[in-house]
Design a protein around this nucleic acid. Structure first.
Length: 264
DNA sequence: ACATTGACCTGAGAGC
DNA sequence: TGCTCTCAGGTCAATG
């Protein structure tokens, strides 16, 4: 689930539910989810503090606890946040549980345990250490930088778009949507694309991310012109009515319309 | 140096 | 019903 739009929705959710609430207790229910910190250390760093602000870079969510202390959340393939009142309603697969002094709770849920919880003292440094490229949705990323990063390399454009080191935030689903909106074949070689192709990709990326965030990353709320909701075998292309097909591209299943998106 | 593959997890759904 | 197999919106290490 969690690509950039999903994580942005989580960030806003954290903002609207948990900001400035006194943290009473922190419980790690699965030690394996922690990276570079023990449950005891995490507990000491968070308890008696509060979230003062949030930040997102690519698929990472940051909660600021102090000026030089951030809680870092990554959601893997199945992670999400759940805020609730009744302690008994902790979701299944809750890996980290934060109890606020006002009686409510914030659960970090991650069924497949591919996510990660850690801390960082500086967001910029964390981003650099992880080798993440610029965030795909920040306007700071201009077209020239986008082209410079994405158009080099002999691999497919789809894998370039999903490469977090080039541009951070796109995953399997949204790279497909960007390619569909820009009418570019997922298997097209990144370094063979025309400037025109790249321009359409860049514009589609911004447009798709903005639209997806507005739709709260819910496929049912996305425009009918998107392939995302039609992501099923033999679905109909919302543009030409043809059949949406699927194929493996660098290990992931890509959905695309062969008629609209030409050939590799 | 760079691109692709397999491994890491768990559970849902398909097929038998 | 119950078993097995495949696959899932991510990432890293190992391989080519």
């Amino acid at each position: 689930m969690p690509e950039l739009p999903d994580v942005e929705v989580f960030r806003r959710y954290l903002d609207s539910t948990s900001l400035h609430q006194h943290i009473g207790a922190v419980e790690t229910l699965d030690e394996d989810i922690l990276v570079g910190i023990s449950s005891g250390q995490l507990q000491r760093k968070l308890e008696r503090h509060e979230f003062k602000g949030t930040h997102r870079h690519g698929k990472y969510l940051f909660g600021r606890v102090k000026d030089s202390l951030w809680l870092v959340l990554h959601f893997g393939m199945t992670g999400y946040l759940q805020y609730y009142r009744n302690r008994d309603s902790a979701p299944r697969h809750t890996r980290l549980l934060i109890d606020f002094c006002n009686g409510s709770h914030l659960a970090y849920v991650c069924q497949r345990r591919l996510g990660e919880v850690s801390v960082a003292d500086d967001v910029e440094r964390f981003v650099a250490e992880r080798g993440l490229g610029p965030d795909a949705f920040r306007a700071r990323l201009g077209f020239d930088a986008f082209r410079e990063r994405v158009a080099r390399g002999r691999g497919s454009i789809k894998s370039a778009l999903m490469d977090q080191g080039k541009v951070a935030g796109l995953g399997n689903i949204y790279s497909d949507e960007v390619l569909f909106q820009a009418c570019v074949h997922p298997k097209a070689k990144a370094n063979k694309l025309s400037d025109d192709d790249l321009k359409r990709l860049f514009e589609a990326m911004t447009e798709v991310l903005e639209t997806a965030i507005e739709a709260k990353a819910d496929p049912r709320a996305m425009p009918s012109t998107y392939v995302l909701p039609h992501r099923q075998k033999e679905g109909a292309c919302p543009r030409c009515g043809g059949t949406v097909c699927h194929d493996k591209v660098s290990g992931r299943t890509a959905y695309y319309c062969p008629r609209c998106q030409g050939s590799a």
